[in-house]
């Protein structure tokens, strides 16, 4: 095999692998990406049911209902709009009424949200950033002090 052919083979295989990877990435980008919305955005943007989404905001005070077999219903609010969420599973430790939360799942035809994943903050000092941004947009952000110790 000549030098030239070897070099061509090397470049050819590199291009082939990169091409395949690019194809995979573009293909995956179309189907696997999950958009994040706050309750108000969700109401305004007229999103089709069946789409996989993440929604975030505060757990509405007094909205948490615990049903049989670990079913939970609650509402996520940004104080302008609410979304009803139902979820089957264990809630994270820092899930509380009035606290920031992110739910991932599918929007139902009746505009409720069926979550299969609920994420809260890792630490009581911090708010999930998407939630903080969504709340800021609605003007209900109250800063960093939400719960626990204030920082000196």
């Amino acid at each position: 095999m000549t030098r030239k052919k070897r070099r061509l083979l090397l470049i050819g295989s590199a291009v082939a692998v990169l091409g395949v990877a690019l194809g995979l990435v573009l293909f995956a980008m179309r189907d696997t990406i999950v958009f994040f919305y706050g309750p108000t955005e969700l109401a305004q943007k007229n999103i089709q049911p069946g789409a996989r989404l993440r929604i975030g905001g505060l757990v509405k005070e007094g909205s948490v209902e615990r049903l049989a077999s670990q079913q939970v219903r609650f509402a996520i609010t940004d104080s302008t709009s609410d979304v009803r969420v139902s979820y089957a599973g264990l809630l994270p430790d820092l899930f509380r009424e009035g606290q920031g939360v992110v739910a991932e799942g599918v929007l139902q035809p009746d505009r409720t949200f069926l979550a299969d994943k609920v994420l809260a903050k890792h630490d009581e000092r911090y708010m999930p950033r998407e939630v903080a941004d969504a709340l800021k947009k609605q003007g209900v952000w109250q800063g960093e002090e939400t719960a626990g110790a204030a920082r000196p």
Binding site: L24, A28, T32, F35, F36
Partner: peptide, 14 residues
């Protein structure tokens, strides 16, 4: 300004 999350399905496919 769009917020998205890329989760396990993306990596499973790529």
């Amino acid at each position: 300004g769009d917020k998205i999350s890329v989760g396990p399905p993306f990596y499973d496919a790529t």
